[in-house]
């Protein structure tokens, strides 16, 4: 009998009793490292706590536990380490808001000097820490091609200090500093930075994006990143129920809609070239994504009708442009991923 490669939940759920343990996700393993353990003070349904555990547990598996994480200031650091408690079950270091890439470079250099290049270094920050304030240090780290995996947990604003706009905040979103008032409520169009593309412009060995909505994809990317030496960049979209005004139970759903609308492209690039994209499986209009978030509520009237059709249309054309740019619909009709294999190979 030919082996049947279809398993009820395909490759989309966390675990699968029908596939070999080695093919299941790290998260499905009862013995996973739980790098970030319980008792942390993240809000209910925090996407950043989830994304950090996903990524670091995968890195721990990839390195056999020989891992050091350097953390910038931000929610992830604050909610995990109120003195003297810590939620980290890995070697973990915090210095300042802006300097996490530089500190990581130093840790990697020190390990090299001590002859312990088997121990790998991860540096992590929020979008504010990566896109804005830590950007200089990060760009330098890329430029020197230091052996560090830098992970940006993108929740699209400075959440820890009360939801201020960052360079990663999307247009039209309400934040504490881009209020939903005046003729153009919310964040402005046409500004902001696309850090994955900026990282690609440094021609580092590996750049990838991921979300908390596709665990298999996220873990694959962490493992691939850990198999490479030099500077690597992983950008993970992590919805924030508090800052986005979404239900705490909707964290994964919102992230999934970000990908299925085309607003957030999921891809991998090597040395500045996109080599793989995760195609959209169930294309959705941006409205579906906007409606379930309080930060976009001003685009709809209290009855739920679109109050700002021009803005919604502009966001839709942003999504359409991203879909076209990355070819996110090519192969969308193709077979779902089988087992726990990899994403669809891009045509390029």
């Amino acid at each position: 009998m030919a082996p049947v490669r279809f398993y009820q939940v395909g490759s989309f759920a966390v675990g699968n009793r029908l596939v070999d343990r080695s093919e299941r996700t790290v998260q499905s393993d009862a013995g996973r490292s739980n790098s970030l353990t319980s008792g942390h003070r993240a809000c209910q349904g925090c996407g950043e706590a989830l994304g950090a555990r996903y990524a670091l547990d995968a890195a721990m598996r990839a390195t056999g536990g020989r891992l050091v994480a350097v953390n910038a200031t931000g929610c992830l650091e604050v909610f995990s380490t109120p003195y003297p408690e810590t939620s980290w079950q890995i070697a973990w270091l915090h210095s300042l808001f802006a300097n996490a890439p530089a500190v990581a470079t130093g840790v990697a250099a020190a390990l090299r000097v001590k002859g312990r290049s088997d121990i790998r270094v991860v540096s992590q920050a929020g979008d504010g820490g990566a896109v804005d304030i830590g950007f200089g240090c990060l760009s330098g780290m890329f430029e020197r091609n230091d052996d560090v995996l830098f992970i940006c947990y993108d929740n699209e604003a400075y959440m820890n200090t009360g939801v201020q706009r960052s360079g990663a905040t999307p247009p039209a979103a309400r934040t504490a500093t881009t209020e939903a008032v005046g003729p153009h409520p919310g964040n402005v169009f046409g500004q902001g930075k696309n850090l994955p593309e900026i990282a690609m412009a440094h021609r580092i060995p590996y750049v990838a994006t991921a979300t908390v909505a596709d665990l298999h994809d996220l873990e694959d990317k962490v493992s691939r990143a850990m198999a490479v030496h030099g500077s690597r960049y992983l950008h993970i979209l992590v919805p924030c129920p508090l800052g986005w005004g979404s239900a705490s139970s909707d964290t994964v759903r919102v992230a999934r809609l970000a990908t299925q609308t085309g607003l957030f492209p999921v891809f991998e690039a090597e040395r500045g070239r996109v080599v793989r994209v995760t195609p959209i499986r169930r294309l959705a209009p941006v409205e579906d994504y906007l409606r379930i978030q309080g930060r976009f509520r001003h685009l709809f009237d209290p009855e739920g009708a679109v109050a700002q059709p021009g803005v919604v249309a502009a966001l839709q054309s942003m999504a359409d442009a991203t879909i076209a740019r990355y070819g996110l619909l090519a192969g969308a009709e193709a077979e779902p991923r089988q087992g726990t294999g990899t994403g669809t190979e891009a045509a390029s």
Partner: peptide
């Protein structure tokens, strides 16, 4: 193949999703 198409409506089938998606372990 056909048996594996069952969605297991309303009853746990050990997919580990809850175990994975909880931000609080």
């Amino acid at each position: 193949f056909e048996a594996r198409r069952c969605l297991s409506c309303g009853n746990c089938f050990q997919c580990d999703n809850c175990f994975g998606v909880c931000p609080d372990n």
